[in-house]
């Protein structure tokens, strides 16, 4: 469904991605693990066209590297950024509305479906986006992306800085979203969550993939965890 082949990316002169190859299959949750600064967020941005990719990104058997971000979004990729990027000055309802790619877009994710999974947002509809809690903002950012009816969403560090109870809730939501047929590429810092909900995991180090396998395989390999993951 989504794949990169020998993908490179640069920030100015620093070579952040050094030949990344990976793939996400339909309906899968694939986690991208690794320490801070190894290039996981850059990989997300390069796939979305927000950082110029060098190499190939394919989505649904078509090359999407080189397209503009809005064109990539229209192909069916959704993006939930690390900082949630709630639009300040807009209400929760308006933030959701911007998730639709066209006026009156109807897809698998209308308001009813969103409210069913994100009941907290329904109560907050008229609140300014910047005043709701961090957990609610994270849910809003995910819901906003779903409003555009993506076939695959890239979710960058959704649980960062959230209380354990909310983290559980987000993990449950991601499983639910994948079960509804939306593939998930998840960047996650919390190993326990990633191991619990992922079908497969990738481990990144120094701009490359250093491990690929099932959560069980990573669990059973303390050496690789020690070298690339644990602090």
């Amino acid at each position: 469904m989504l794949s990169t082949h020998d993908l490179h990316a640069y920030y100015g002169k620093s070579h952040v991605l050094r030949g990344v190859s990976m793939n996400v299959q339909p309906g899968e949750i694939v986690s991208l693990l690794g320490r801070n600064g190894v290039g996981r967020s850059t990989l997300c941005k390069a796939v979305m066209g927000l950082v110029a990719p060098v190499g190939e990104v394919r989505f649904k058997d078509q090359v999407i590297s080189g397209l503009d971000p809005h064109q990539i979004a229209h192909r069916g990729l959704g993006y939930v950024p690390e900082d949630r990027a709630i639009f300040p000055g807009l209400t929760v309802a308006e933030n959701l509305e911007l998730g639709k790619k066209k006026r009156g877009q109807t897809g698998r994710w209308g308001y009813d479906e969103i409210f069913e999974r994100f009941p907290r947002l329904k109560e907050r509809m008229e609140f300014p986006g910047e005043v709701i809690s961090g957990g609610e903002q994270q849910m809003l950012s995910m819901a906003r992306s779903l409003m555009g009816d993506p076939e695959c969403i890239i979710v960058d560090e959704p649980t960062e800085g959230l209380a354990p109870k909310i983290v559980e809730e987000i993990a449950h939501l991601l499983t639910d979203i994948a079960a509804a047929g939306v593939s998930v590429l998840l960047v996650e810092q919390k190993l326990s969550i990633a191991l619990k909900i992922s079908n497969r995991v990738y481990l990144m180090g120094e701009g490359r993939m250093v491990f690929e396998g099932t959560p069980q395989e990573l669990h059973d390999d303390p050496e690789i965890r020690k070298e690339w993951l644990e602090v």
């Binding site: 927000l50 503009d68 809005h70 639009f87 000055g89 509305e97 911007l98 998730g99 906003r144």
Partner: peptide, 25 residues
């Protein structure tokens, strides 16, 4: 208006408005 919403969103985060499928340029 919807156009106004897109403009307001672009005032703070044009990158995210684009990633949501709007033609920011």
């Amino acid at each position: 208006t919807r156009a106004g919403l897109i403009i307001q969103g672009s005032l703070s985060r044009p990158d995210i408005v684009a990633a949501l499928g709007h033609n920011v340029p």
